[in-house]
């Protein structure tokens, strides 16, 4: 118990230090970019076949909408946090990052897509991370991570 508390303290200090002594290396290298896709399953043993992009960005966004987002942008900020979780999963996998992504996908689909039949029929959820990178002039995609299959908690 004492060891666990010390470990927690150490981790918190490790996370706080980059704020007190920042590196400020914003966008120094443009690395491969993760995309989160999810699949709804009817049983725990079903194999995911239909993957959907999580929160696909709109085709176009008006200038007024961009300015409005200056004051109110919760969904986009949450999506950026999920991108961070995806990067952490690929870098140093933790249960926390996987749980956060699963929890937020489920919350979003039950809140925003509860009228679709696929949601009502589904009992389980899985996500995967696609990594997009450029090689020469071509964009390449690879599946970098596939999550566990999670039983959906009833939020409907």
């Amino acid at each position: 118990m004492k060891k666990l508390t010390s470990l927690n303290m150490l981790n918190t200090i490790k996370r706080l230090l980059p704020a007190l002594l920042p590196s400020w290396r914003f966008f120094d290298f443009i690395v491969a970019s993760p995309r989160i896709q999810f699949s709804l399953l009817k049983t725990e043993n079903e194999t995911s076949r239909q993957w959907q992009e999580f929160r696909p960005r709109p085709t176009q966004l008006s200038f007024a909408a961009m300015i409005k987002r200056l004051l109110w942008n919760p969904e986009w900020n949450e999506s950026l946090f999920m991108v961070s979780c995806a990067e952490r999963l690929l870098d140093q996998p933790t249960q926390h990052s996987e749980d956060e992504i699963l929890k937020r996908i489920q919350h979003d689909i039950t809140k925003n897509h509860s009228d679709t039949s696929a949601i009502h029929e589904a009992s389980h959820l899985q996500f995967r991370i696609l990594l997009i990178n450029r090689k020469g002039t071509e964009l390449l995609q690879e599946i970098a991570f596939t999550s566990r299959i999670q039983l959906m908690q009833d939020e409907r």
Partner: peptide, 14 residues
């Protein structure tokens, strides 16, 4: 690269 494939642009149009 940022505009072409990063997670940041807020719309596909960008």
């Amino acid at each position: 690269d940022v505009f072409q494939f990063s997670a940041y642009p807020v719309s596909e149009h960008l």
